[in-house]
């Protein structure tokens, strides 16, 4: 009986707080993406559209660790049993990747371009098996092209 009440409370708390946190995060992500839109990011090995000139390069990176809430963990467990999209983790990973790229861009907001960007995703979990607590680390790194001087 106690376990049930405990689990219900945790799930409810997780649902409410997780929803609020996600909404706020997405709002912030969209806002900052709009703000940093002028800075191009590419995955190519050479900068695109930049002619020879007085430039210098610098390695930039951005990383973030985000965890799921209790509700999403439950939902992910259920979705894992029945198969299909594990939506609980989709938004988690999406948020983490966009945040990491944004942090990378914010390191050098006045760069001409960030090229050769690579993205690494690692899961940091406590425990083993499908009962593990899901949290994800995303690292985005690339080379920033800056005006010299």
């Amino acid at each position: 009986m106690d376990t049930l009440i405990m689990v219900v409370i945790l799930t409810a708390v997780g649902f409410v707080s997780g929803k609020i946190a996600e909404k706020m995060h997405y709002t912030s992500i969209r806002e900052r993406e709009q703000k940093t839109l002028k800075l191009p990011v590419t995955t190519t090995r050479r900068p695109l559209g930049v002619g020879p000139g007085n430039v210098r390069m610098e390695l930039v990176s951005g990383s973030v660790v985000i965890s799921v809430d209790y509700f999403k963990m439950m939902l992910a467990g259920l979705q894992n049993i029945f198969g299909g999209h594990v939506t609980a983790y989709e938004s988690l990973i999406d948020r983490a990747r966009r945040e990491a790229i944004l942090r990378m861009k914010e390191q050098k907001p006045f760069a001409l371009q960030i090229f050769n960007v690579r993205i690494e995703t690692t899961s940091i979990s406590k425990g083993t098996g499908s009962g593990a607590v899901g949290s994800v680390e995303v690292l985005a790194y690339g080379t920033a092209l800056l005006k010299a001087g």
């Binding site: 590419t42 995955t43 190519t44 594990v86 990973i93 690579r118 993205i119 690494e120 690692t122 994800v136």
Partner: peptide
């Protein structure tokens, strides 16, 4: 252009594909 694939493993028993 320059498409890369990457995977992660947040949920055990699920496939997490990422392409950019």
């Amino acid at each position: 252009i320059n498409v890369r694939f990457s995977t992660s493993s947040v949920a055990a028993g699920a496939a997490e594909l990422y392409v950019y």
